[in-house]
Amino acid sequence: MLKKRIIPCLDINNGRTVKGIRFENLVDAGDPVALAKRYMEEGADELVFLDITATHERRTTLTEWVSLVAAAINIPFTVGGGIHSLATAARVIEAGADKLSINSAALANPDLISNIAAQFGTQCVTVAIDTDYIDGTWKVFSHGGRKATKWSAVDWAKAAEQCGAGEILLTSMQGDGTRFGFSLEITEAVAAAINIPVIASGGAGRPEDFAQVFTQTRATGALAASVFHFGSIAIPDLKQYLKSKNISIR
């Protein structure tokens, strides 16, 4: 049986792992290569690396740390942040990333999704969506949560799938860094509207939050950062707990 995926996320700032609350107040959380290796050994199913300052500072993703990570781990990993052209995408794949995550660049130019999918396959393209509940709708934000867009989360997820996205990484900005639990309602709404996998993100605080997102929504992966970086949840304990709830876990 296909397993639900536990996915630690490493936000990268100048080559270091950082973690903030609601996208701000960044705190240093360690060396990405060492952390990646530790998570792999503890049983992480995949890893996601997001260079969170990339887009608005217009830097390109540092392919050096991508190669270092690729040499150090042998589980799939996704890299996002600053991938705004097919050429950059090719460099990051070449450096050893299995998937690319695109966010603001896809909103500005949805053809980028199709172009990367045509070249490297849809399984390579994760579209990351940052969403917040504003005036009764789940709105999509770009530029690391700074800029509102015209899209609702469900409509943008559908459009991204049409363009050739292979997966949606859905982050609830309300939940991000707060540890109050995943936003179940929007996660299920998006997952029900599309035929590609959804990774839920934002708000994981307790093992019960992971159990809820896997039993109450169609998300096939759950992503978290701070609970893993700062040690409040250990991955082996989390997986044992989810297995005890009869959730299909590696």
Binding site: L2, K3, R5, D45, Q123, G166, I196, P197, R250
Partner: peptide
């Protein structure tokens, strides 16, 4: 869901 993606 297709592709079949993940651990099995």
């Amino acid at each position: 869901l297709v592709p079949h993606m993940g651990w099995n």
